[in-house]
């Protein structure tokens, strides 16, 4: 059962990811990517990481991709103005990515094992558990992420500002 759900989701996510890459219109790409994100959220649920799944939806589907759509729509970029890269270039890209995949999988194949597989704490993905870890062990990175956000915010505002002078 679980395996079947996993495989279904996996197949859908790979297909939609490919469609995302190959879609001519950027808006379609965005929508395919959102579908991919939903399947990934499904995988999180399968992994009993519900909190993660919901946050994933909120952040990626709910915020980031909306931003993408926004920009696409504001700039009205859907016209197929994107000049396609040459076939050779595409082939090169495919070979590069393919060889990356083959190398990675080949190098890992057969040696994938998880060190702590004997421990079993199915509650690990629940929000209480995550909260404890986040606010004890990982509180420093949590604070540091604040700097990151502040910087990104200032940066985004700075970039987005229209020039006041002239």
């Amino acid at each position: 059962m679980t395996l079947a759900i996993f495989l279904t989701l996996a197949v859908i996510s790979v297909i939609t990811a490919l469609l995302m890459v190959f879609a001519k219109s950027p808006v379609h790409s965005v929508l395919y990517l959102i579908l991919t994100f939903f399947t990934i959220a499904g995988q999180y649920v399968l992994l009993n990481a519900q909190f993660l799944a919901v946050v994933h939806i909120i952040v990626y589907a709910g915020a980031i991709m909306v931003l993408f759509l926004f920009v696409l729509m504001l700039l009205n970029l859907n016209k197929d103005t994107e000049p396609q890269k040459s076939a050779g270039w595409k082939l090169a890209g495919a070979i590069a990515a393919g060889s990356l995949l083959v190398t990675m999988v080949g190098a890992m194949h057969g040696s994938i094992q998880i060190a702590g597989a004997e421990q079993s704490n199915p509650q690990v993905g629940l929000v209480e558990n995550l909260g404890k870890v986040l606010f004890t062990d990982f509180v420093v990175p949590f604070e540091i992420a604040g700097i990151l956000f502040l910087a990104a915010m200032v940066g985004a505002v700075l970039v987005g500002k229209k020039d006041l002078k002239v």
């Binding site: 420093v140 990175p141 540091i144 992420a145 700097i147 990151l148 910087a151 200032v154 940066g155 970039v159």
Partner: peptide
């Protein structure tokens, strides 16, 4: 911790992109 490395890299980079 790798988390810190990652955050550090991003804090360094994001302002620089701008």
């Amino acid at each position: 911790n790798l988390t810190m490395l990652f955050l550090g890299i991003e804090i360094l980079s994001i302002p620089l992109y701008v």
